[in-house]
């Protein structure tokens, strides 16, 4: 059953300065569950800013963001942190794993913050790391993993808490072709088999080719919204 997960209304972000920059300009957007969406556009088109506002990491200058019916602009910083923990998974361009924790502990981290029972945590971490092909690397620290492997741990971490959707900001920007293909395969499979909603910001053609919906931003505005 289709359900609206993300909804933006007249969402704008303007950076004040000598010349104000409208990074995101009155964007209306609706993303449903189970979508595999890529937000594309040239550098400076507002992709990351849009993603940050959807993820509650940045506040809009005007307009609003609703996630699963919850209006983010009414929340204070602590409520936003809590909301992100429960509802949103993040995958960053530079992996951003906790260097002192192993792959298993990094994946488990969000669940520990959510105070999920150890038995459930262990089962889920094992399942996720096997799904991303890192069952043998559970006890490796990030420094012992390749870039592609680290990004797969980041995906596992993002999914560990069973979020409403995963926001991935340029997830393949630092990966080679093989790792990119591998990561996209994993995310596509999780999307199709487990119904997880993914929203990417990217200008990587390989990601765009795999997306089922491509939203193109130019100068902070949606230029096209193509469903495949």
């Amino acid at each position: 059953m289709k359900q609206l997960v993300i909804e933006t209304k007249q969402l704008s972000k303007t950076y004040e300065g000598v010349v104000p920059v409208h990074a995101v300009n009155e964007v209306d957007l609706e993303i449903e569950n189970n979508e595999f969406t890529a937000i594309v556009g040239p550098s400076g088109s507002g992709k990351t800013t849009l993603l940050n506002m959807i993820g509650g990491l940045d506040r809009p200058t005007s307009g609003g963001v609703k996630v699963n019916g919850h209006e983010l602009s009414g929340m204070n910083e602590n409520e936003l942190i809590d909301f992100r923990l429960k509802h949103i998974g993040f995958v960053f361009q530079s992996y951003n794993l906790i260097p002192v924790l192993t792959a298993k502990e990094n994946t488990e981290f969000i669940m520990l913050l959510q105070k999920i029972d150890k038995k459930i945590r262990d089962e889920r971490v094992e399942k996720l790391l096997h799904e991303v092909g890192l069952g043998e690397k559970m006890n490796s620290r990030p420094a012992q993993l390749s870039g592609g492997q680290q990004q797969r741990v980041a995906v596992a971490r993002a999914l560990a808490s069973k979020p409403d959707f995963v926001l991935a900001d340029e997830p393949t920007a630092n990966l080679d072709s093989h790792s990119t293909a591998n990561l996209l395969d994993i995310m596509a499979r999780l999307n199709q088999e487990e119904g997880i909603t993914f929203v990417f910001s990217t200008h990587d053609q390989r990601v765009i080719d795999r997306a089922r919906r491509v939203i193109t931003l130019v100068d902070g505005k949606i230029e096209s919204d193509e469903r495949r």
């Binding site: 923990l85 429960k86 993040f90 951003n96 260097p99």
Partner: peptide, 16 residues
């Protein structure tokens, strides 16, 4: 600082 930002972004409470 960057790492702290990431941890707060993924949902770690600042007081923690």
């Amino acid at each position: 600082k960057h790492e702290f930002g990431v941890l707060v972004a993924i949902g770690m409470k600042r007081v923690k």
